[in-house]
Measured scan of single mutants.
Amino acid sequence: ADDEVAKLLVDAYRKNDEDKLEEVKKRYNISDEQVKRLIRKVL
């Protein structure tokens, strides 16, 4: 599931889509710190 979330985050990140990032964060209840970590893992 982590990889799936990471893909969604990276996708939103690449598109610079703040709304999507927020949506994913809320849906999976993850912190900014986790977001950064997941994005770093993929990029």
Rank of each mutant, 00 (worst) to 15 (best):
38 L>M: 10
16 N>Y: 06
25 K>H: 00
42 V>W: 14
10 V>Q: 07
16 N>S: 07
26 K>Y: 05
12 A>P: 01
13 Y>S: 03
26 K>F: 05
8 L>Q: 11
10 V>F: 13
20 K>C: 08
43 L>D: 06
35 V>I: 09
23 E>H: 05
18 E>T: 15
11 D>C: 10
21 L>W: 04
36 K>M: 10
41 K>D: 12
39 I>T: 01
17 D>S: 04
1 A>Q: 11
23 E>D: 08
10 V>G: 04
17 D>N: 06
12 A>H: 03
35 V>F: 13
43 L>V: 07
18 E>Q: 15
31 S>E: 04
8 L>V: 06
6 A>P: 03
38 L>I: 15
8 L>C: 07
22 E>V: 07
19 D>F: 11
25 K>A: 05
4 E>D: 11
23 E>L: 07
10 V>I: 14
27 R>M: 12
36 K>L: 09
33 E>C: 06
41 K>Q: 13
4 E>S: 09
13 Y>A: 06
4 E>H: 12
37 R>H: 12
12 A>E: 02
16 N>R: 11
19 D>N: 12
33 E>G: 06
17 D>G: 03
40 R>N: 14
23 E>I: 07
23 E>V: 05
38 L>T: 05
41 K>A: 13
30 I>Y: 06
2 D>A: 10
11 D>A: 04
15 K>N: 14
18 E>N: 15
11 D>R: 02
43 L>M: 11
37 R>I: 14
4 E>G: 07
21 L>Y: 05
1 A>S: 13
10 V>E: 08
9 L>M: 02
9 L>P: 00
3 D>T: 09
16 N>T: 03
26 K>L: 10
18 E>M: 15
42 V>C: 11
31 S>L: 03
17 D>Q: 06
6 A>I: 15
29 N>T: 03
38 L>Y: 04
39 I>A: 02
1 A>W: 15
13 Y>V: 10
32 D>E: 08
15 K>Y: 08
20 K>N: 05
27 R>C: 05
6 A>T: 12
23 E>M: 09
30 I>N: 00
23 E>N: 05
32 D>W: 15
4 E>V: 11
17 D>M: 05
9 L>D: 00
5 V>R: 03
6 A>S: 10
10 V>A: 12
33 E>A: 10
40 R>T: 13
41 K>E: 12
20 K>I: 10
21 L>G: 01
14 R>N: 12
18 E>D: 10
8 L>R: 05
24 V>E: 00
11 D>G: 01
5 V>S: 03
36 K>R: 12
20 K>F: 10
27 R>D: 04
7 K>H: 10
5 V>Q: 02
28 Y>N: 03
15 K>D: 14
17 D>C: 04
15 K>R: 13
14 R>D: 08
18 E>H: 15
7 K>C: 12
25 K>S: 03
43 L>P: 03
6 A>W: 13
20 K>T: 12
39 I>C: 03
39 I>P: 02
31 S>T: 12
6 A>K: 08
34 Q>H: 08
8 L>F: 03
13 Y>W: 15
32 D>S: 06
3 D>W: 14
24 V>T: 06
26 K>V: 08
39 I>N: 00
17 D>T: 02
6 A>G: 08
16 N>A: 09
17 D>V: 03
15 K>H: 13
8 L>Y: 03
7 K>P: 02
23 E>A: 10
24 V>S: 01
26 K>H: 07
2 D>S: 11
28 Y>E: 01
37 R>G: 10
24 V>M: 10
43 L>A: 06
43 L>C: 13
19 D>A: 15
31 S>W: 01
32 D>R: 02
22 E>M: 11
